[in-house]
Design a protein around this nucleic acid. Structure first.
Length: 607
DNA sequence: AAATTTTTCG
């Protein structure tokens, strides 16, 4: 019978099964049914699966444990969770395999609450003993729900039983703690360090955990440690590391990783080459990204999406649109994410008409119902272009409920176009929807200040302080000869601090001669007022640019990365500096790239 | 069985 599911197509094994059942001299047993169920699962033939299930019922095999687990598993594969649950509920006895099938089945169908609930039933109400697979099966659900307390209970259960000796269980805990946020990375690392027999997967889980939580330096140093160990990176390790490089924006590091895989089999991994394209795009080399893209023998939808969003990131809206039409001709079907990438590119290039057409055609021509993310993109397109009232009407007419991200987008547009009145309405809305967000507190307080309603401003600010809400400080990175230098606002810690500030004074003199007046954005910046005064002249990007001017030969391109969005005044100043010093300055901020040359920015002052 | 590439706003 074993040959049924291996021999020929699953469909033929199913008809063979029917034939066998009808013949009188051969009686199918529960194994026969188990194989037939696996065959139906493998063939994704739900109808056939139901037929076999029905026949098993008639023949009285439905209470067999192994068969039961297979039937439950099959229904989960078809996303028929109700049927799976019914079969499970009707089983007269249950073993760990059956329970584990329920746990992972719910998990695979993204029903994490149900998965955790079944685990609780198993522990509290059942006499079945759990095993290491049980713990591993429930951990992804616990991680997804960020149920840290339950995770810790499971951790102690694992230590009390023998389960903790399995490396894959430890790996599950590493990814659990990683998903619970940055501060749990210490626990993850502890699990990793204490593993007596590490595996490639535990290394990968640890590196990926660092990357997910933005701890890219940590990720890279662990990767270097791994290179000294007995383990060699696989394509998964490489994609994790490339995503760290992309986050950091350090081209030299990304090129180094590219060098490691050049000429190896990894290059043929679609994951690796797509990650390389993303890395080059995010590190500023859009041309190199395109070169790799053109070299790829095979591309999937993610590859296309990466290239489209790369163009978007650089403000190359027309390139994004033309590669999108190439995608349509390539035979790779666009996905919902593709439309997000295209809309994103339209908004960063000011292509209102094109974006509007795209939004409509995705619905009417491609049959994708727009999600709240697509609506947010559309609000961004309208808002950035200055159509604030249209954007507001668009939000009000949305068939899905507007979440904070949609209002946040409109708020960004209010800031660009200095619409204080609308900003006030929107901030109140945001404050109401998400009272734990620092940004909204500071913003609302600044808006009250602008209205000269100081008592109200103070109240909002105090509320934020009381809740210990703090905001990430702005910082900028510049690489000189492969060495990274990081600056914060008003930073005095750099060894060449004196020369840097002198350079800034010198530049400011020249800029004023050219008619420059500092622009301070009232109220619409979510920065504390005192901080704003302190920082305005010495924002981290200016320090980094000044250092770049000192530390490199005349004419060298200056490339910097900032963790926040570049402010209006710094944008103006950078344009002027590019003109005065005759340098190309490339700035990657939290949102996109700006290429400054001869006093003009590639974003067309549109960001 | 665990670990990969794309995704608005901030």
């Amino acid at each position: 019978m074993g040959g049924f599911s291996n021999n020929g197509s699953p469909h033929s094994s199913l008809s063979l099964f029917s034939h066998l059942r009808k013949s009188t001299n051969l009686v199918p047993n529960s194994s026969t049914y188990t194989y037939a169920i696996s065959a139906a699962s493998g063939a994704r033939d739900e109808r056939a699966g139901r037929v076999v299930h029905g026949q098993a019922l008639v023949d009285g095999f439905d209470s067999e444990l192994r068969l039961g687990s297979n039937i439950v598993n099959m229904y989960f594969k078809f996303s028929r969770v109700g049927d799976a649950r019914n079969v499970f509920d009707r089983m007269p006895e249950r073993d760990s395999v059956l329970w584990n099938t329920m746990l992972s089945g719910y998990g695979e169908n993204e029903m994490y609450e149900e998965s955790v609930q079944v685990f609780r039933e198993l522990i509290n109400e059942s006499s079945t003993r759990f095993d290491s697979t049980t713990l591993l099966s429930v951990l992804p659900a616990v991680a997804e729900l960020q149920e840290l307390r339950l995770g810790m209970v499971i951790h102690s259960l694992a230590m009390k039983t023998g389960c903790y000796s399995h490396d894959f269980v430890r790996t599950g805990f590493i990814s659990l703690y990683s998903k619970c946020g940055k501060i749990e990375m210490e626990s993850a690392r502890k699990v990793f360090d204490e593993s007596p027999h590490k595996s490639l997967t535990s290394w990968n889980a640890m590196i990926s955990g660092y990357t997910q939580n933005g701890l890219t330096e940590d990720a890279i140093s662990l990767f270097r440690e791994m290179q000294k160990s007995e383990f060699s990176p696989n394509p998964i390790t490489i994609t994790c590391i490339l995503s760290a490089c992309a986050q950091l924006g350090t081209l030299s590091l990304g090129k180094w990783v590219h060098g490691l895989v050049r000429g190896t089999d990894f290059e043929s991994s679609i994951y690796v080459s797509t990650a390389l394209i993303g890395m080059y795009a995010k590190c500023g080399s859009i041309a190199e990204a395109r070169r790799l893209f053109d070299l790829m023998p095979k591309r999937n939808e993610v590859t296309w999406n990466t290239m489209i969003s790369g163009y978007g990131l650089h403000g190359h809206g027309q390139d994004a649109l033309s590669i999108f039409s190439e995608m349509l001709n390539s035979g790779v079907a666009p996905t919902q994410v593709t439309f997000l990438c295209v809309l994103y590119a339209c908004s960063h290039a000011g292509l209102v008409k094109e974006g509007d057409d795209m939004f409509n055609s995705m619905d009417h021509r491609y049959g994708f119902e727009p999600s709240v993310k697509h609506y947010a993109c559309m609000v961004d397109i309208l808002g950035r272009a200055g159509h604030l009232q249209r954007a507001l009407q668009f939000i009000e007419a949305m068939p899905v409920e507007a979440d904070p991200s949609v209002w946040q987008t409109l708020l960004g547009a209010c800031r660009i176009h200095k619409d204080t009145n609308l900003a006030r309405t929107v901030s109140e809305k945001l404050f109401e929807l998400d009272p734990d967000n620092v940004g909204y507190h500071v913003l609302l307080s600044n808006i009250h200040s602008a209205d000269r309603n100081y008592p109200q401003a103070a109240t909002v600010r105090q509320a934020a302080k009381k809740r210990k809400l703090t905001k990430a400080p702005g910082c900028t990175l510049i690489e000189i000869g492969g060495t990274p230098h990081v600056f914060t606002s008003g930073d005095k810690s750099h060894p060449q601090v004196k020369a840097i500030y002198e350079k800034l004074e010198e530049l400011e003199g020249k800029m004023r001669e050219a008619g420059y007046q500092p622009e301070t954005e009232l109220a619409l910046h979510d920065v504390e007022e005192e901080e704003r005064e302190l920082m305005v002249k010495f924002h981290s990007e200016r320090l980094a640019i000044a250092f770049g001017l000192i530390a490199t030969e005349p004419g060298t391109e200056i490339r910097i990365i900032k963790n926040l969005r570049v402010c209006l005044d710094c944008h103006t100043v950078t344009k002027l500096i590019s003109e005065i010093t005759e340098r190309v300055i490339v700035v990657r901020d939290a949102n996109r790239f700006h290429h400054f040359r001869d006093g003009v920015c590639s974003c067309g002052d549109y960001w």
